[in-house]
Amino acid sequence: MTSTDERLAYMAAQILRNFAVKGQKAAIEAATDHIVQFWDPGMKARASAMLGDAGTDLSEDVRAVFERLRQEQPAR
């Protein structure tokens, strides 16, 4: 995992922590919406790519966010 990947994972985790008060499910939903609104396509693509990277160490919730992101991303 490159440093940018680490940073994206960190950013997603930080967003999740700030939505955590909503409860896990809602936090994942809110974090995904946030990322859709504010991350550029390259960042979103890297987030999705991390899901398939065996070396990527993502928390369960970050993984859930990135998974939803992958589903929501427009086909390219």
Binding site: T2, S3, T4, R7, Q37, F38, W39, D40, G42, M43
Partner: peptide
């Protein structure tokens, strides 16, 4: 229709070569 990069993201992307 997609958001662009913020300044720190631009710098990260630069060090990544994109």
């Amino acid at each position: 229709a997609e958001p662009g990069l913020r300044i720190p993201n631009m710098l990260d992307a630069a060090t990544d070569g994109t």
